[in-house]
Amino acid sequence: MTTERSTAPLIEIEDLHFRRGTHTIFEGISLQIPRGKITAVMGPSGTGKTTLLRLIGGQLRPDRGRIVVDGHEVHRLARSELYRLRKRMGMLFQSGALFTHLNVFENVAFPLREHTRLPERLIRTLVLLKLEAVGLRGARDLMPSELSGGMARRVALARAIALDPMMILYDEPFAGLDPITMGVIVSLVRRLNDALGLSSILVSHDVPEVSSIADYIYLISEGKIIDSGTPEAVRHGSSAWARQFMEGLPDGPVPYHYPAPDYLDDLINTGKS
């Protein structure tokens, strides 16, 4: 059983359907996230990448289909079982989502204090270990308001690995960072994944950064998986849409112009708006 589980994919999503009001976010997508790898889910803004992470974490419920994480069907779990599963998941939110009333040290110590009864000395050691891993041991006494965007994300990453999870969900980890900080985060994601034996699910639309560290990429658009494969395979794949996205071309299957009547007709018919 243990061997079976360790070779099975960490996450299996089958025929996932999800709508928000009348807007369809996912229309029957199926994908598998392997263990020990960095898997990226990419797509344009508003395609539901963050929604997918929330569905995997059990914060949202699919309309149809199933999501299995480490052998547990997330949406059939009782609250206590779901919380037990979440203790083994880390999530890095785009904003960092640090607790603004706690300093850096206490933010990282938060999950340890909530879920363990470790003595204070050991909590201190563990927190300093995690902060050292993200290079912010010296910032332990700062408040979140005193941190830059990149530092806040690194503290949030230290907090996400505080309980030594089996997987980390990254929600747009590279968005809005300067090149140096982005390089730091890119290297951290890869190093933590390899050093801690984690599985990483990374949601992003930053093509160069993701391509440099992801083992496998799923491209999502309009509720469907457009392409998947290694970064190289997706870049040179048969899908014109995938090539446009990966190379950042302004025109292609996703047109530059919003659908409109003929340009000349529009200019001639001056009386109409």
């Binding site: 929330r54 974490g57 914060q59 919380y83 037990r84 979440r86 203790k87 998941m89 880390g90 999530m91 939110f93 989502a97 938060f110 999950p111 909530e114 879920h115 949030a156 907090r159 309980l163 969900l169």
Partner: peptide, 8 residues
Amino acid sequence: SSMEMMAV
């Protein structure tokens, strides 16, 4: 949300 994801 982050609290929920930390199983708190």
